[in-house]
């Protein structure tokens, strides 16, 4: 515990898929610390373990060994339900494939996390509308994902991830399915959330253009952190 201010601290994290002969070591001992308010890009070639570490950070997957401390809590010791509550209360997710509920309006998609939080209907609707407004989708509340473009769907996903005012936003290739211009709009939105609302952003990407929006880049190769550096002047 050298760095008491760290929001997230991973030490000696490994992840093994499969068993015996077929076992595959996706992470071979990862140590890293993330401070509140950081904007971190996680890069690396496919199979480098960047998505695996992202899933572990997001409590979507569990490490095979090592410790993961989130705000002083040892996540690797939490139960399944406790990890769910941690996701519910502290984390927001944005995926490459948007992962919105099909045939469900933007408003209902955005208010979904609030329903699980047990917020009353009126507060829920107001918060969901405000979040959609914030991502620039005011007036699109009643549209289903099929009626929205990819960029709009990703905006809905971002609205859903921030509607709970999370401490950390985890974005896994958020621009992977989008064209350059839309990608830039999405990245501007995420940057603004980091800057204006102080949300810590962890983003996996393999595009250097997108990583350039971050203040810090961690590069993974072959299941290990290869480099970890601050992006000079990129803001």
């Amino acid at each position: 515990m050298t760095d008491a201010t760290a929001l997230i601290r991973l030490s000696g994290i490994t992840k093994t898929y499969g068993q015996g002969q077929a076992a595959f070591l996706a992470l071979k001992g990862v140590d890293l610390a993330i401070e509140p308010g950081e904007f971190v890009a996680i890069m690396g070639p496919s199979g480098s373990g960047k998505s695996t570490v992202m899933n572990i950070l997001g409590c979507l997957d569990t490490p095979s060994s090592g410790t993961y401390v989130f705000e002083g809590v040892h996540v690797e010791q939490l139960t399944r339900d406790q990890r769910a509550l941690l996701r519910r209360n502290y984390l927001g997710f944005v995926f490459q494939g948007y992962n919105l509920l099909a045939r469900t309006t933007a408003l209902e998609n955005v208010e979904l996390p609030l329903i699980y939080r047990g917020e009353p209907a009126a507060a829920r609707h107001a918060a969901a509308r405000a979040a959609l407004e914030q991502v620039g989708l005011g007036g699109w509340e009643d549209h289903t994902p099929a009626e929205l473009s990819g960029g709009q769907q990703q905006r809905v996903a971002i609205a859903r991830s921030i509607v709970t005012r999370p401490a950390v936003l985890l974005a896994d290739e958020p621009t992977g399915n989008l064209d350059t211009r839309t990608s830039q709009e999405i990245m501007d939105l995420i940057t603004a959330l980091n800057r204006d609302r102080g949300i810590t952003v962890l983003m996996v990407t393999h595009e250097p253009d997108m990583a350039a929006y971050a203040k810090r880049t961690i590069r993974f190769v072959d299941g290990r952190v290869e480099s970890d550096q601050l992006n000079g002047g990129a803001d």
């Binding site: 997001g58 979507l60 399944r80 339900d81 769910a84 509550l85 996701r87 519910r88 209360n89 984390l91 997710f93 992962n99 919105l100 509920l101 099909a102 979904l112 996390p113 699980y116 939080r117 859903r160 991830s161 709970t164």
Partner: peptide, 19 residues
């Protein structure tokens, strides 16, 4: 298949298994 993904989404945004 569709519902499994839906369950994944719900779990990711913080739903408990029993919910």
């Amino acid at each position: 298949t569709e519902r499994t993904r839906e369950i994944g989404i719900r779990l990711a945004i913080g739903a408990l298994e029993r919910e």
